[in-house]
Structure formats: structure tokens, C-alpha cells
Amino acid sequence: MSKPLFASESAGSNDTAATTTRRPRPRLAVFKFASCDGCQLSLLDCENELLAVAEAVEIAWFPEASSRLQPGPYDIALVEGSITTPHDAQRILDVRRSARIVVTIGACATAGGIQSLKNWADHEDYLRCVYARPEYISTLASSTPIADHIKVDYELRGCPISRHQLLDVIGALVKGQRPRLPSHSVCLDCKRKGTVCVEVAQGIPCLGPVTHSGCGAICPTYDRGCYGCFGPVSQSNCLSLTDQYLSMGTSTETLLPLLRNFNAAAPEFRDASNRIEAIAKRTETSPEVPHE
């Protein structure tokens, strides 16, 4: 999980012999699991490039965009969404079998998404909360990322993903190259853009130091702290950052939901939020510690 990209060498190396001869266009498929459709929409949001992409690859399976659905095998499968039902846990195995390269796109697919909040909750209670007839429903008690079920070749982070990164990845794979994506933190992007630090200047808790780059560091340019929608950067030190915020007076009530949103089940964020929750509970039960 901590090294999201370049998980597999096989994708590029299989291709190199074929690049000298004229190859048929790679066949692209887009699959959806539990998600909001926003990450696959990112492909249709490449308005300037869409028709060029459609020339570079054969769009063989993309139900949101085309009624012409062709069976596999596929060269590249983009997988959106997390696994939340017994059926989907089976279906993802078929996707893996049908595709040479599997690229998971977005926080649902790479970390379980916002729906992973149910991993902390009473599942039956959630069912009753939404549905009058819970017996009609078949779901798993947890929402898990795709990589918990199959081998994933590349991961694209974000809620939603960056369409520029998506184009870079498709472009590289079409050329038979290994995609190269930045792996630094959002914090560094702010420095590069010259954005004044919202934490330092305004005291707003910000996850920029521990969050994976890719969004363009937009939140701080709109006077709000990063809420981690690209998930933890590799070797993030969430414990140190949250300790620092706590020591500066940020409440556990602020930090807990900040870590528990779109990448709540990513291990680094999950561990940090569980720890904050434990601290909050200790504070609640300890009479000596004043509690606001």
C-alpha cells in the first residue's frame, strides 16, 4: 500500500519485443465497483484529449460511455470503486483474469473510499438507517480496496483522481512504458506554488504534509486545510503530525473526522485515527483532564 505505483515490472517488459512491429491498439476496459462514477468521469472530462485517446486505444468496455461492449481479454483495465458485496468480490477476480494490466483509479479502489466508514460501524445499524426492508440487501460488513482481492499493477490515487495523471498513465502504457507519477506530499506542492501555509499563517489543521500529491494542492489556495483526499503519501508520519496538532491545541474532535473520510481505511490514516479515537476516549473517562 505504501508504494502505490510501479508495483509490477511485468507490464512493460512483456511489450518491448512487440514495439518494433505495428501492434494493434491496446484494448481498454473500465470497470465500476462501489463508487460515485467520478473517477471514470475523469476520462470523459479529458475533453480536449478524448478523441485522441479513443484513437490511441480501442475502448472495448466502458459502459458509461459506450453501448458497444466487447468481451476480453483486455490490455488495460481501469478499475473504479471498492469491494462491498459478495458478488463484487467474485467479479473482481474475473476482471483480473481478463486484463493484462490492472490500474485502480481513485480512493474507493485504492483505499476503500468513504464507504469504508462502515468498517467502524455496526453494519446492521447502517442498513436499518437507510432501508426500510434491510432483508432485501446483500452486502459485506466492510468496504475493501481492490488490492486486498487481486494483484494490482498500478494505483492512481485521489477522490477524485487527477485527469492529468490518468492521461499520463494511459499514455505511458500505450507506449509500453512504465507510468511515472510524482510520489511527494501535497505540502511540497504548496511550496512550489508559493501558497502561504494555512497551518502556519492561519492555524488551520492541514493534512498536506502526509498526503499524496496529485490534486494540485487546491485546498490551501482556497483558504482551507488539506483533507487528505489523495490518501497517505509513502513514508508519511501521521503520528508525529497529529501529535504536533494535539500539542498545539487542536481537538481530537477536529482531527478524527479529518483523518476519517475518503481514505479512512488507508493503513496510515486508519492507524492515526484509531489512536486519536483512543486518546479521545481516555480524555472522556479521565475526570482530571478538563474536557471541552
Binding site: A34, T84, Q115, L117, D125, C129, V130, T139
Partner: peptide, 17 residues
Amino acid sequence: EPPRFFEGFLRCRPLED
């Protein structure tokens, strides 16, 4: 479409979220 239980997640969250 798999259920995602938004009404469930929202309970007890800060309204700003």
C-alpha cells in the same frame, strides 16, 4: 449499484463535513 449508506456515515459527523 452496491449500497453505500451515506445517511449512516453522516450521523455524528461535524456539519461542516
